[in-house]
Design a protein around this nucleic acid. Structure first.
Lengths: 332, 332
DNA sequence: GCAAGTTAAGCAAACGTTTGCGCAATTAGA
DNA sequence: TCTAATTGCGCAAACGTTTGCTTAACTTGC
């Protein structure tokens, strides 16, 4: 078994409490001479702190947990990068657990893994939590915050302004002179999709454009959803522009457009939502409404930190991160 | 504070030890009647096990830790999926920590996060560990296994056969009639790159082809490395086929080839190494030597399990996972 | 030279579990 | 009916830390 604080104490000829104080960098109660001896002994014995013991007595740790819906979403990486960087800056450690969004039982297990130990906060990355699991999370009294996902109730979250996303994307195409604009692969009913749809409608409305029902092709943000939407529009569509619900959906639509013999952007402009690096590796590169995922991670950590300090969620606990449009080669 | 086992004991009028036995599903030492009462009380009080306490006394947990080099690598997701699925099947939980490969200090922190608690095993996903950190890992006495990375010393690992990868990719092009074949964006010195290079050379050698120095463009497997390699080959290259070190490198080369006015596959065939979904979303779709990343994850968990059971690493602790070639549209 | 103040270091309790052991009550065997 | 085996359950120790309190030693001021 690994060496403990007592082994060090015995070796140096000092009390365990003193060793503890040295090793956890308390500023008082020992001489620098003792400190040196203790540290030397610790190194020599290959001492590793037993965090279980520490967390048991301190009832808190410096660990932030992130629960991620799936490995598939290609922006999760950027959010995690942001969390990691901000956490690291404050001396927190990050652990990530994955949970298949579909299964409530899997969600529960993932959540329990982090709730059952005294993590300082929980960040949920685009996870649609079941009611039971949400209840469990709330009851745990651990600060939490949803990332890249909004709600119309009082749950804390950090996300982009989905209404603005829908609005800006559509407006961008309108300003380029397009009048017939599709919305592809969006999931119309959940909060995010509803808001984007509302933004899309608002922009059209302001330009006195009345959308045809067929312009809106719902889907699940995936590559195949983009493909299907494009198939539904068809070769002879009178649309000249498309707002795609995600980068993957945009790529699906782009490839299918090519299959149909439509040239992007000459016959058809496509603007994508998300702005991950995917946009830059396809040809033509995709114009996008880019979300600042990295910043979401950073802000998420700050939210957790606030909750820990204030012992309560702050009032403005629902925060929107601005988006930016990057014009590339898929629109004209 | 959350309810403890003692609160339940008091409420039901029973000893804490009995509660513990009920809640951890011990098969004996209580009546089903007591069990019911205990479970009811636990539910009512919203009881959550304190894993820190459990781990402290048991000195082991059912948590497997994965250390990932970075969020950027697009195959890490597949490996994690495999780990997750196999772990879940055996009732283990998975936590993931990210570590920037570049910084030894970051690595150390990530490693400490998992070593300092009694995880049952550590999986390292394409992490080049510094000597100090490797030493620390070994001394921790926690079973570990490298994934998607091989070594010529005795460290346990699960990876593809990199020699075979280089060989098969090259042979595939040779069998298609190519004689002048480049190797792009590969890092020549580390074990992986060295082996792939050896496989490439072997295949050429068997076909009595003597490679020109300029055929091999080293790099770091990235998109830009693929781009640079293609730039180096140039518009007027006499190469007719290229083996790209990774999917991203292949896409970089593909896009640059288009910029140079070369048509793929008509003027130039490209075969990619990895076979992630990226291959299927670019145009033309990339022929690839596909690694079975999912399986690596699965086998990695099995390795950990063995080590835990046997209390020692098994003899054949370096395992190679077969690869498969998927012919798509970037070769002819 | 002595009281008061300061400092280093030790003692012991506490955190929430698990588990070996012991005891009492019940059941079985003869 | 008496002993032996079995069962349900409680007692208490243990896991490795942290930390409030106490003590001893040393310094300072007068």
């Amino acid at each position: 078994m690994s060496a403990t604080i007592k082994d060090i104490a015995r070796k140096v000829g000092v009390a365990p409490s003193t060793v503890s104080r040295v090793l956890s960098n308390k500023s008082k109660y020992y001489t620098s001479e003792t400190a040196e001896k203790v540290k030397a002994a610790a190194r020599e014995l290959g001492y590793k702190k037993n965090q279980a013991a520490v967390e048991l007595v301190k009832k808190q740790s410096n660990v932030i947990a992130a629960v991620v819906s799936s490995v598939k979403t290609n922006f999760a990486g950027q959010i995690i990068d942001g969390i990691q960087s901000e956490a690291s800056k404050h001396g927190y450690n990050l652990i990530v657990v994955y949970s298949n969004s579909a299964s409530a039982e899997e969600q529960r297990k993932a959540l329990l893994t982090v709730i059952e130990r005294p993590v300082m906060g929980i960040l949920l990355l685009s996870i649609a939590l079941s009611d039971d699991n949400l209840k469990m999370l709330k009851e745990s009294d651990i600060p939490y915050c949803f990332l890249s996902m909004g709600f119309d109730d009082d749950r804390p979250f950090v996300s982009s302004d989905d209404m603005e996303i829908g609005y800006e994307a559509t407006k961008f195409l309108i300003d380029k002179g397009h009048r017939k604009i599709g919305l592809a692969a969006i999931d119309k009913y959940p909060y995010t999709g509803r808001l984007r749809l509302a933004g899309y409608s608002k922009a059209l409305n302001e330009a006195n454009i009345v959308p045809d029902n067929s312009w809106i092709q719902s889907g699940d943000y995936s590559y195949t959803a983009g493909e299907s939407a494009m198939k539904a529009y068809g070769k002879d569509t009178d649309l000249t522009g498309i707002v795609a619900a995600s980068d993957m959906a945009a790529i699906g639509a782009l490839n299918e457009a090519r299959n149909l013999g439509l040239r992007v952007p000459d016959d058809l402009s496509i603007i994508s939502i998300d702005g991950t690096e995917m946009c830059q590796i396809v040809q033509p590169q995709l114009t996008s409404v880019s979300q600042d995922f990295y910043k979401m991670g950073v802000v998420g950590v700050q939210r957790i930190e606030e909750s820990v300090v204030n012992k309560t969620a702050s009032k403005d606990h629902q925060q929107l991160i601005p988006v930016h449009i990057y014009e590339r080669d898929s629109t004209k």
